[in-house]
Simulated scan of single mutants.
Amino acid sequence: MGRKVALSFSGGKDSCLALYYLQQQRIDVCCLLTTVWKESLATVAHDEKRERIMRQAERLGIPIHFVETDFGTYTDDFVFYLNELKWHYGIDGAAFGDIYLEGHREWGEQVAAAASIEAMYPLWSEQRDVSGLLHQFVSLGFHAEVIKADVDKLPDKWVGRRIDGSFVKDIMMYKDVCPMGESGEYHTYVYDGPIFRTESARR
């Protein structure tokens, strides 16, 4: 029997590249799981509109489920939904787009274990190798834009920039910034790439 997993999905480059890796391994990503704040319904960390994430899921051809949560119940809410997805889809794993931060991995393993499923990290790499993931993201034909930036680390004018060769060259100049934004230096929205089944409306 093949693997069936739910993917923690933000709509950004990490989760989209993770989806690509999983599909290349012939792992059945049977659903996406996105956390949104109860008050605003914007996505956690990215502050993206729920409608834009739904549009991505439609173009991916994968069902999406939203976890409405807040700071106090975040972990419990995530575990609850993993158990719901296990019952509904028969998932045996939860995949995450984290790359090298051990604290993030520990949390994912914790919530997966609470739902009696396996945590999977298709992008997991050494910190020194992370620039290769960004180069690969661009070379595979993904198209994304910066939707949020930490102004203490990057210029606010970077919001709206496309993730392309020029972006890769520029961000490598910042020695205290992870090229993939692993510590929240910037967040992205992916609007095209090899994982999408239908064309983007963006030109």
Rank of each mutant, 00 (worst) to 15 (best):
L140K: 13
Y174I: 04
S8N: 14
E39P: 00
A95V: 08
V168Y: 08
H88E: 15
F78V: 08
V168E: 12
L85V: 06
E51I: 03
I64D: 08
V36S: 04
Y89D: 08
L17Y: 12
Q24G: 06
T34A: 05
V130A: 13
T73S: 15
Y174C: 07
G184L: 09
A149D: 12
I53K: 10
D77M: 03
Y89E: 11
E68L: 04
A201W: 08
H135F: 02
F137N: 14
H104L: 11
G97Q: 09
Q23S: 13
R105P: 02
T43W: 03
S139P: 01
I91M: 10
G61A: 11
W124M: 07
W124V: 07
E109Q: 15
H104G: 09
S200C: 11
I99K: 10
F9P: 06
M120R: 12
H88K: 15
S10T: 13
L123D: 12
G160P: 02
R50C: 06
P179Y: 07
M54S: 13
P63S: 11
S8L: 11
D47H: 12
D14Y: 03
P63G: 11
S166R: 14
E48W: 00
R203G: 14
Y121V: 01
D14N: 13
G93P: 08
F137D: 14
F71P: 00
H88F: 01
P194K: 06
E199C: 03
R55F: 02
S116W: 00
E126V: 01
L133T: 04
P122W: 02
G181T: 10
G72A: 12
L133R: 11
G132F: 03
S139Y: 00
R26L: 02
V190M: 05
G181P: 09
L60S: 07
K4A: 08
I91G: 12
A18D: 03
E68N: 06
I62G: 11
I62Y: 04
V29N: 05
R55G: 10
L123F: 03
D28T: 01
H88N: 13
R203D: 14
C16N: 15
A119E: 05
D192Y: 02
Q136M: 13
V190D: 05
Q56C: 05
P179M: 06
E145G: 10
R202P: 00
C178K: 04
D76H: 03
E106G: 01
E109V: 00
L82A: 10
A114Q: 14
S131R: 09
